[in-house]
């Protein structure tokens, strides 16, 4: 029995081309001298070809989808769990017509090590980023908002070029701050959530007012009166030489600038003011088609240029006088 096993195995190895050297020579001489042995080799060769063909057809059928996966016995218990028993109809009909054997289907275990962890990592990444993000915001939110307040003040001071009048505005801004605590605290709260988001200009309020349009006769006849007498003109234009024209409606938008811009934009009848709060006591006046804004005791002339401009103080006393008289 054992001899037979070894003999068949030897022939297998010969047919596979695994025999070398002495064993091969010995085998070949035996083939020549023993016809029975040679016949056995021939038989084995033919049968092996049959087995190969059977396997090849099986695999081809598998690839063509004519046959389901089959395997004999599971290697491990893990595979047992994944096993799905399935009767291969094709096999029952054609190949194993005698025995209704069930073909067991196994699923190849995918490589969890790679893609499973990759998927977990991908899922976790946003969470990690989120928490890091939140952590940094908590760290930076308070000093950040404080800084903003201080920069607000400093930039105010910077842009104001140390002229007294504009300092007044700054002062007023500072004085209005306490009254505005609710809104400022709201700002801080907003800042904590999107401090990284670029701060945008914010519209605080909007109102439409109607302003009387005055015209000074003096300005019309300015050159004339200058010719006659300076003093005379000064006296005459004073209070009386003012003519009231029709009212003009002005749409005023109060804006809070992100970069603490202190100025205005006058485009037609639309005025956007920066650095002035709706509750500031300001008044608007039209004189000779020119718009003036009065804040505290100072007048600022607003140019209808359609561009953003800084407030320029009106220094002409005569005009101030006329403006004051209305």
């Amino acid at each position: 029995m054992k001899k037979d096993i070894e003999r068949v195995y030897l022939i297998d190895r010969y047919l596979k081309g695994e025999l070398t050297g002495l064993t091969l020579d010995e085998f070949k001489s035996r083939l020549k001298s023993e016809p029975d042995f040679a016949a056995e080799v021939e038989t084995q060769k033919a049968i092996i070809e049959g087995i190969k063909l059977a396997r090849k057809e099986e695999l081809l059928a598998l690839l063509r989808g004519q046959k389901t996966l089959s395997s004999i016995s599971p290697k491990t218990t893990e595979q047992k769990q994944e096993r799905v028993s399935e009767i291969s109809e094709h096999q029952n009909e054609t190949v194993n017509s005698n025995s209704n054997e069930t073909t067991e289907v196994y699923r190849m275990k995918p490589n969890y090590n790679n893609w499973f962890y990759a998927a977990v990592a991908v899922l976790l990444t946003p969470f990690i980023f989120y928490f890091v993000f939140i952590y940094f915001i908590k760290e930076n939110s308070e000093p950040l908002s404080n800084n903003e307040n201080s920069t607000e003040q400093t930039t105010f001071a910077d842009t104001n070029n140390s002229t007294e009048e504009q300092k007044d505005i700054v002062k007023q801004n500072q004085t209005t701050l306490p009254s505005d605590t609710t809104s400022s605290s709201n700002n801080i709260a907003i800042n904590t959530e999107d401090s990284i988001v670029i701060k945008k200009d914010k519209k605080i309020d909007e109102s439409t007012i109607s302003i009387a349009n005055f015209q000074s006769i003096n300005s019309v006849n300015n050159e004339e009166s200058n010719n006659v007498s300076n003093q005379h003109s000064e006296n005459s234009l004073g209070v009386n030489a003012i003519k009231k024209l029709n009212n003009t409606t002005l749409k005023i938008e109060y804006w809070e600038s992100a970069v603490n811009f202190n100025g205005y934009k006058l485009d037609g009848n639309n005025l956007k003011v920066f650095g002035i709060k709706p509750d500031d006591k300001v008044s608007f006046k039209f004189l000779d088609d020119k718009l003036y804004i009065k804040k505290k005791e100072n007048y600022y002339k607003l140019e209808p240029s359609g561009e953003f401009e800084h407030y320029t103080k009106e220094v002409n006393r005569e005009i101030i006088k006329i403006l004051d008289s209305n």
């Binding site: 021939e42 070809e49 049959g50």
Partner: peptide, 10 residues
């Protein structure tokens, strides 16, 4: 040529 028909062995 093989001793047996491969198809039949199969």
């Amino acid at each position: 040529p093989l001793k047996y028909d491969t198809k039949i062995v199969c």
